[in-house]
Simulated scan of single mutants.
Amino acid sequence: MELNDTFESQINRSDYKILIVDDVVSNVLLLKILLTNEKFQVCTANCGNMCIEQAKKEKPDLILLDVMMPDINGFDTAVILKKDPETQDIPIIFLTALNNPSDLVHGFQVGANDFLTKPFNKEELVMRVMHQIQLVAAKRIIVRQNDELRRTINNRDKMYSVIAHDLRSPMASIRMVLNLAVNVVSPDTVGPEIFELLDKANRESEETHDLLDNLLKWTKSQTGRLNVVYQDFDLEEVVPGVVDIFTMIAEMKKITLQYIPSEEKITVHADNDMVKTVIRNFLSNAIKFTPEGKGIEVFFKREGDFARISVRDHGVGIAADRVETIFHKGETTYGTGGEEGSGLGLQLCQDFARKNGGDAYVESVEGEGSTFSFTIPIKKEA
């Protein structure tokens, strides 16, 4: 059995209503008998105006519409139906004795889905009707599945938002306690094994807090609840501050983190918090994939109407086949110290860069290191 036959067998014909429109009573009765015997619901009209009324009232799934009628012909009736949002999606099969190619072309121009030439036989009638009903059934399935998918995505985003929001506060407290513990104790006071466990817990709390922060921002961004708040600010007043936050983290991994000042003052027009978030994610990523003893440089420069902010590391690099998809793959990765990454941070970086009118980029050589950059618009001179 063919796939089409299987789908047809799953269609309950009694769920579908067909509107028959013809000014000849005998034609209406014949079609009504044939289609009722085929288990379809049937309603009728004897002119164009009545067809328009019935289409709105009965909401049929298909209209069999005679072309030659005394008040409004079938073509003009179809034009009216297709202009009305209530009836524009109802498929139409024209019933006609016309076989002039120009009439057929005109019929399709005004919205015909098919033609049935008079006189017609039962087999052809049922075949053409079923073809349109199958399309209607398939469209209903697609609409239903889209609605279900939309609800699933909305529920997922709500769940992500709740998880991230409710866990951030306790995670921030845990992170603060662990930061304090690592700073006030040493291997000599608590022993090397306990200190190593504290250090590991401290690093993992930092990563978990950052992940929750990214998750909350990403969810808000995807659901349209995170708006871009444009400001004019100097990069020199923002970038060094973000770098300072990561200096201690880099030193704990014996990595040299260097900020290279720009030779010129650059004022950008962008969302300050989003810019900081992107730099923060790029730095976190660079530290994660840079081995001990290596370095990371942060710098920015002017490129036409944009400023390009870059974080360059000398770490493990990225395989050539992964470079093109690095910003949207979202796969789990592991750093040089076993740090686990979700890939969400890089997706967020590209999203934020594009929301500000720029974009995110990566250049990498496996085994030598990577440079992650993003661009944002420079403030336009008045």
Rank of each mutant, 00 (worst) to 15 (best):
L149V: 01
R150V: 01
R151D: 09
R151F: 04
R151L: 08
T152V: 04
I153F: 04
I153V: 11
I153T: 06
N155C: 05
R156G: 09
R156S: 11
D157Q: 08
D157A: 00
K158Y: 07
M159G: 05
Y160T: 02
V162T: 10
V162E: 09
I163F: 08
I163E: 01
I163V: 15
A164M: 02
A164N: 00
H165K: 15
D166I: 05
R168K: 14
S169C: 06
S169K: 15
S169A: 14
S169E: 13
P170L: 06
M171S: 12
M171P: 01
M171Q: 12
M171G: 05
A172P: 01
A172K: 09
S173V: 12
I174N: 02
R175Q: 14
R175F: 09
R175C: 12
M176N: 14
M176L: 15
V177G: 10
L178C: 01
L180W: 12
A181P: 00
V182S: 08
V182M: 06
V182K: 07
V182W: 04
V182N: 04
V182H: 07
V185D: 06
V185H: 11
S186G: 12
S186R: 11
P187I: 09
D188P: 02
D188M: 12
D188N: 13
T189H: 08
T189R: 14
V190K: 04
V190I: 15
E193R: 13
I194Q: 11
E196S: 14
E196L: 14
E196V: 10
E196G: 12
E196W: 08
L197Y: 12
L197S: 15
L198N: 07
L198D: 04
D199Q: 15
A201W: 08
A201E: 10
R203V: 08
R203N: 12
R203T: 11
E206K: 13
E206Y: 10
E207R: 13
E207F: 07
T208Y: 11
D210M: 09
D210C: 09
D210I: 06
L211E: 03
L211S: 00
L212F: 06
L212Q: 03
D213R: 07
N214G: 04
L215Q: 03
L215V: 01
L216C: 02
L216H: 02
W218Y: 08
W218T: 00
K220R: 08
K220I: 00
S221F: 04
Q222S: 04
Q222F: 01
